[in-house]
């Protein structure tokens, strides 16, 4: 009911504004013609307003539903606290492009490194034979190259990208955190190190991907356009690229499957996995556990902002 009243009130207000504006325009015309024109414009304007209101109420309804869901969740898991957006939509999209390309690359590439392994032949034949699995490998490669370009632009052009880049740079704190964490594991120190937005584990993952992408894309392009490369470089350069591609692939696969999966999915806090890569949200409780310094910063910023609002 209240919503309908609000709609009517808005419509009337806008209608009055238009009426007064129109009166200035039609003053020179004969009365019947002026009335007909006014009626026409009124109809058109009313349609526009209706449409605008409909759109707004739809998005309002979506927001309201989301808030209600949040409220229910809060009631159920009170200890989790409010949720924070840890990774924005753009960042999640990049991560999804990257991991789908890496999965494609691993499953089409590893059989070539281990041709005698029992599953290799099956995997290659799954794509229809070597002549097609190499095409799939190149599709994966194109996706990874796209991800790399997208991430460069994201880092340069967006505010979040620039902020995250500076926060990801390794600092002396990280070395201290490693020592602190290991002492904590061994029971020498009671508390975990207090991490900011990115812990040393996440920084390692980030720069490992950087290193991996440069080596893999660089050497991979050599192997992709082998004849063009050999126009300028001797054959052993291609052999070096082949060796790098093969060895770095192994390192990257092991690091992802063992290290990254343990830290984000399989460790006892998260087992059997997290959907953070999909929704990008993190609860207050998790923030307190894993990124306390970032949480403090956010709380401090909010306090400052609300103080400014109330002052202004």
């Amino acid at each position: 009911m209240a919503e309908d009243d609000r709609k009517d009130a808005t419509r009337d207000a806008v209608g009055r504004e238009i009426e007064s504006a129109m009166n200035g325009q039609v003053s020179g015309l004969p009365p019947e013609q002026a009335e007909a024109l006014r009626e026409k414009i009124r109809l058109r304007v009313r349609e526009e307003i209706e449409r605008d209101l409909r759109a707004r109420t739809a998005s309002d309804r979506k927001d309201a539903a989301h808030l209600a869901k949040e409220a229910r969740k809060k009631e159920k898991h009170g200890e989790e606290g409010e949720t924070f957006i840890r990774f924005n939509r753009n960042f999640r999209f990049q991560h999804m492009v990257m991991f789908s390309s890496v999965i494609l690359l691993i499953i089409t590439g590893m059989p070539l490194k281990f041709p005698n392994f029992i599953l290799s032949r099956f995997v290659i034949n799954f794509w229809g034979g070597i002549q097609y699995s190499t095409i799939v490998h190149r599709i994966g490669a194109a996706m990874l190259i796209y991800f790399m370009i997208h991430h460069f632009l994201y880092t340069i052009l967006t505010r979040d990208g620039r902020r995250d880049f500076w926060l990801l740079l390794p600092k002396l704190e990280d070395a201290k955190d490693i020592v602190h964490n290991i002492r904590h594991f061994l029971g020498k120190l009671p508390d975990k190190p207090r991490f900011g937005r990115f812990s040393y584990i996440e920084k390692f993952d980030y720069w490992a991907v950087y290193w991996g992408c440069i080596i893999m894309i660089g050497s991979g392009l050599f192997l992709w356009f082998e004849t063009d490369v050999l126009r300028f470089l001797p054959k052993y350069a291609l052999d070096v690229a082949h060796e790098m591609h093969s060895d770095e692939a192994m390192l990257a696969t092991l690091a992802i499957v063992i290290w990254h999966f343990y830290n984000v999915h399989f460790n006892p806090d998260r087992f059997p996995g997290t959907l953070l890569w999909w929704h990008g949200r993190m609860s207050e409780h998790e923030m307190k556990e894993e990124h306390p310094l970032e949480l403090e910063e956010i709380v401090a910023r909010r306090a400052k902002e609300s103080a400014e609002v109330s002052n202004g």
């Binding site: 594991f185 061994l186 690091a255 063992i258």
Partner: peptide, 26 residues
Amino acid sequence: TATFFKWLTIGTMLALIVHIFLDMYG
């Protein structure tokens, strides 16, 4: 190149796995 990557892989993975086991131990 092969030797460099061999030791890079062994070194990195050893450090990472030790870190994982220490984490689980803690």
